[in-house]
Amino acid sequence: MNDRVAIRVERLSKEFTFGGQRVQALREVSFSVETGTMVSVVGPSGSGKTTLVNVLGGLDSPTAGEVWVEGRPIHVLREADLTEFRRRRVGFVFQAYNLIPGFSALENVGLPLEFDGTPRRRREERARECLELVGLPPSRHRHTAARLSGGEQQRVAVARALANDPAFILADEPTGNLDSANSDIIVNLLASLAREQGKTVVMVTHDRSLAARAERVFEMVDGRIL
C-alpha cells in the first residue's frame, strides 16, 4: 500500500433501519484519500454522506466492504479498539456543534483529553492552544456554550476535534448552522489544518462553493460516489 494513502475504502456498503424503513445508505463505495489532503463530500440529503463519515470514523460498522485507515482495518475492529481509534486518531466536528451544556469552552475542548487520562494542567494548556488556534479570544475561554455565538461554538467544536492532535478530521456539515462569514472562517480553518499541519480532512457539505475549497470533491447520490 502507498504510504501516502491515509484512507482506503473498497466496495463499502451500509444498510440500516430508520423509522421502520430499511435504508441502503452506501452502495459499494470505493475511493482513497492521501495523507494531508482535504476532501469534501457533497450531495443531496439522504445520499449517504453522514453515514460515510460515521463509518470512516469508527462510529458505525459497515454491512459489507472494507475500510482501511492508516493501514488498519477499521471494518473488523472490536468496540474497545474503535474507542481507542476515535480517541487518538480522529477528531469529529458536527453540524449542531454538540458542545456539552454547562461546560466552558476550555472544558469542552479538554474533554477528549480527559478520556485519554491527560492530567488537568496539561489538559488546560492544550485546550488553550487549540482555542487560540481557532481564533477564540481568551476572554471567551471560560464562557459556557450557551453564552457563545454559533460561530464561536463551532470554533470550539473544531478546537475540541484538534485536542488529541488527531491524524483525521471528519467534519459533518460544519457550516450548516453558520452564516457565510463564519462558514468561510471554519472552512479556511479546516483547509489550513490539512495544508499546514498535514491532517487529513473529510468535510461533508451541501454548499458546492465551500466544497470547491477542498483538493478533491466526492459527489454522492443514492449511496454511490459519482
Partner: peptide, 14 residues
C-alpha cells in the same frame, strides 16, 4: 442519548 453519542465520538469508552 445524542450527547452520549457525541461523547463516544470524541473518545469516551463504555
Amino acid at each position: 442519548s445524542r450527547e452520549i453519542g457525541i461523547l463516544k465520538a470524541i473518545g469516551a469508552g463504555r
